[in-house]
Design a protein around this nucleic acid. Structure first.
Lengths: 224, 224
DNA sequence: CCTTATTTTGTACGGATGTACAATCTAATT
DNA sequence: AATTAGATTGTACATCCGTACAAAATAAGG
C-alpha cells in the first residue's frame, strides 16, 4: 500500500504528446466547421475529415457533439476574458478610465488576436455570432460572456453615476453586436482570397461609434 | 381555336381559397421553425407538424427546403423595405431630413409591425439574425437588404458631404446589428412567458445610440 | 519485457432527413 | 354532369447523422 487511497480508482496516465496534437487538430477543425456551418449544419464526419482522423476519434477527444461545441466556445472565451480584464486593470493603473479607454480594452484584445492568431480566432467570431443567434445556447452564452461583460458595464456605470445600469447595459449590448458585425462582415468580404482581413484598422472607428452611442444614451434624461 | 396561342400551354387554374389558407399556414409555420432552430436545425417534418399538414404539402407549396427558406425571408423583406422607403419619402416632404429622422424611418416600421403583427414578425427578426450569421445566405441577404439600405445610406451621406460613403456604410451596418441585438435579446428575455415584448419603448434609445455613433464616425477627420 | 492504459481504427445500428412519386380527393371550369 | 388541374395523403427510398462498441495499435510504467 504505497500510494494509498488514490489507488482505489484506476491509475491515470498523462496524455501522450501525439494525442495532444491530434486533440488540438480536432478542436481546431471543429471550430472551423462549426463556424462555417453552425451547430446543426456541421457534422462530426466533416470535422473528422478536416482534422484528418476517423470519426470515432472526434467523439473520443471531444465527447458528444454538444460537449464539443461548448468546449470550443469556452476555451477561447476564457482566454479572451482574461485578456480583456487584464487590459482593463492595466489601463486603470494609468489613471481614471475614460469611456473610449474602457471600450478599447474590450475590443482590442480580440482584434489583436484575430490579427496574430489568424483563421482560428476569426472562426471564433463567427461562432459567437451563431451562439448569439440561437437561443439554445443561452446558458452557455450567459456563462461564458456575462461575467466579463458585467465588469465592463460596471466600469462604464462609474462614469455615469446618475444613469441606470440597465441603460448602460443596453448600450453595451449594442456595442458588442456592432463588433461582431464588423468582424463577420469583414470576414465575408475578404473570404474570397484574403485570409487576413485588416480588421484592426477599423478599431478606432468602432470605438468612437460605440463611445458616442453609449454617451448619448447615458446623457438622455428619459433614461432616468 | 378560340383562345389562340396561350392554348398551347396547359391552362392554369387560380389557386383555391382553401389552398391559399394552408399555404399561408405552412409559410408561417416555416417562419416559426426556421426562426427557432435555424435552417439546418429545422426539419420539413417539424414545419408540417406545426402547420397541421402532411410532409408532402410543405414541398408542394414551398418547393425545396432552400426555396422555402428564401421565400420566407423575401416576402417580409419586400414588405418591410416598402414601409421603410415610404416612411422616408413621407418624412422628406416635411422638410430637410435629420440623422435621427432617417434612422427612425428605418427602425420604426419593423418595430411597429412587431408590436401589431405579433409573433410572426418577431420570428422574422430572429430569421434575419440567422441569415446574417451564415455566409451561405450571403447572396440572399445582399439581394433582399442591400437596395433599401443603400437608399438610407445615401440619405445620411447627404448630411455629411465630406465623409466617404464607406464610413457611413460601416456606421449603418453597426446600427442595423444593434437593432437586431435589441430585438433578439428582448425576445430571449421575454420568451419565458410574455409573448409581446415592449420592444418599441426602446426605439428612442436605439435611435439616439446609433445617431450619435454615426455622427461621431462622420465627424472624425481620420476618415477622410 | 511485460503489463496496462490509452489512443486509433473499423464497423454497425437505429433514427431522422429531404424528397420523389403514385394514389386519392377536391373543386373549378366547360 | 363531366372533365381536369390542382390540393392532399400516404409511402417509400437513399442518404446522412450521432454514437456506441469491439478490435487493433501504440506507448507509457514497472
Amino acid at each position: 500500500m504505497t500510494s494509498g487511497i488514490l489507488q482505489e480508482k484506476q491509475r491515470q496516465r498523462a496524455p501522450s504528446q501525439r494525442s495532444l496534437a491530434t486533440r488540438a487538430r480536432i478542436w481546431d477543425a471543429a471550430e472551423q466547421v462549426f463556424a462555417k456551418r453552425g451547430f446543426d449544419g456541421a457534422s462530426m464526419r466533416d470535422i473528422a475529415k478536416l482534422a484528418g482522423v476517423h470519426v470515432g476519434l472526434v467523439t473520443h477527444h471531444g465527447g458528444s457533439k454538444e460537449d464539443l461545441f461548448a468546449r470550443i466556445i469556452a476555451r477561447r472565451a476564457d482566454e479572451l476574458s482574461q485578456s480583456r480584464l487584464r487590459a482593463l486593470d492595466k489601463r486603470r493603473d494609468l489613471g481614471p478610465l475614460s469611456l473610449t479607454a474602457i471600450l478599447d480594452c474590450f475590443f482590442a484584445p480580440y482584434l489583436s488576436k484575430a490579427e496574430t492568431g489568424g483563421a482560428q480566432w476569426l472562426a471564433y467570431a463567427r461562432l459567437v455570432a451563431f451562439v448569439s443567434a440561437d437561443q439554445r445556447w443561452n446558458d452557455l452564452a450567459t456563462q461564458c460572456f456575462d461575467p466579463t461583460a458585467g465588469h465592463f458595464i460596471d466600469a462604464i456605470c462609474a462614469l455615469y453615476p446618475n444613469t441606470p445600469r440597465q441603460t448602460i447595459a443596453a448600450g453595451f449590448v449594442y456595442s458588442v453586436s456592432a463588433m461582431l458585425a464588423l468582424i463577420t462582415s469583414r470576414w465575408r468580404v475578404h473570404s474570397l482570397g484574403d485570409p487576413r482581413p485588416d480588421v484592426a484598422s477599423h478599431l478606432d472607428e468602432l470605438v468612437s461609434f460605440c463611445a458616442a452611442g453609449i454617451d448619448a444614451c447615458a446623457r438622455t434624461p428619459s433614461s432616468l
